[in-house]
Amino acid sequence: MLSYSITLQPLGIILISLLVAGCGGLLGYLSTRIKKQADQLVNKIDRLLPQTQCAQCGYSGCRPYAQAIAEGQADINQCPPGGQQTIDTLANLLGAEPTSLNTQFGETKDLQLAVITESECIGCTLCIKACPVDAILGANQQMHTVIAQECTGCELCVAPCPVDCIIMIPVSQGFESL
């Protein structure tokens, strides 16, 4: 009887340690997997945002805001450029109740385009540093200009301009603007 238990002991140790190692591995795998899913949610939310990087939501860009929504720290109604449509699609994705836009973050406007009044530009490069999508071209002491195709209309360049020479114009479809 005694000899029997002694012969089984090493096998039991091996079995149990294997079991423990297996469980640990499984848990480790699951933890990375679940983290990935959370990342996927952030990506999904980020894809629905308008990517103007305007920071009107109170976060530094669209992805940080998406992160905050995924973590439950921010509401889905803080994106003025996206408007009601973005809120609806986000609500659809997250299974939340669609609400109206929180106007303390700003109001939805039609698509705009920044235009530099070139005669007034002093070439300070401050707007270039502010533009999140590199849509402004220019150099120190040289006139700057906006690449109209790349401008997202985020208005981030308006405030830094020391001579207030940047105006926002609505994007129209008429042939006069072509």
Partner: peptide, 9 residues
């Protein structure tokens, strides 16, 4: 357009 802006950002 959003995707393009994101790439540039």
């Amino acid at each position: 357009k959003a995707l393009h802006a994101k790439q540039r950002y």
